[in-house]
């Protein structure tokens, strides 16, 4: 049933490992840069707000595959030397995902009522205390489901890095398929692995959604 998979399992799982690594780097970088983007989007300083907003609107209106493509082919012209597919893919994903995570953070921040912040101040809490004990906990609870969803999307989207020749999970499966010609079982295996991992993640996400309905 899974003979072609079994025969090439270490090669395929090696590809899956690259997918996982790419996801981890993309999320770590995307969320870190996303925090800065989110702060930029709520900044009252015009010279911060407008450039960041321009960046967010630009990237969010370009398909991810083009961002990956452009970065890979344009960077060597700017830097002067070609870049490996993996770091190139990581940077493209960070640039792309940061805009989405930034918007989630902005929305979470703006969902906290100004009145709750004022209530904190009116009891004598300082700016830092209000941020630490009221703003961040409330915003985080509201953002968490969207953050998890976006993380799952990022994980699935890493497949797109095949366009610049990165030998990740799907790319390696294609290579094996060209030799074995067992498309249904090979891509079935890919689908099952994604299905299981994504399902587990979204189950975690749903638990947070339920909590939120309780009034968090």
């Amino acid at each position: 049933m899974f003979d072609a998979v079994a025969k090439n399992i270490s090669y395929l799982l090696g590809g899956y490992w690259i997918t996982v690594k790419l996801t981890m780097f993309a999320l770590a970088g995307g969320i870190s840069l996303g925090i800065l983007v989110g702060l930029g989007r709520i900044s009252r300083k015009k010279w911060v707000y407008y450039p960041v907003t321009f960046y967010v609107n630009l990237i969010r209106n370009i398909p991810l595959i083009l961002v990956i493509f452009w970065f890979y082919f344009v960077m060597p012209i700017i830097v002067g030397s070609p870049m490996d597919p993996f770091p190139s893919a990581v940077i493209s994903f960070i640039i792309f995902e940061a805009t989405y995570f930034g918007e989630i953070l902005r929305a979470g921040y703006q969902s906290v009522s100004k009145g709750q912040i004022d209530a904190g101040y009116s009891t004598g809490l300082t700016y830092i205390q209000t941020t630490r004990y009221i703003l961040i906990p409330i915003a985080l609870r509201r953002m968490l489901p969207s953050m998890i969803t976006q993380s799952i999307v990022t994980y699935q989207d890493t497949c797109l890095a095949f366009v610049i020749g990165l030998p990740e999970f799907v790319r390696r499966t294609t290579i094996v398929d060209n030799l074995e010609v067992r498309s249904i079982q090979l891509f079935g295996f890919v689908a099952i692995l994604f299905l299981i991992t994504c399902y587990i993640s979204s189950a975690v996400s749903r638990r947070f959604e339920v909590k939120r309905e309780r009034g968090y």
Binding site: S113, Q116, I138, G215, Y216
Partner: peptide, 8 residues
């Protein structure tokens, strides 16, 4: 007016 209790 709107109480503004901390919901968490």
């Amino acid at each position: 007016q709107r109480f503004e209790l901390y919901p968490h």
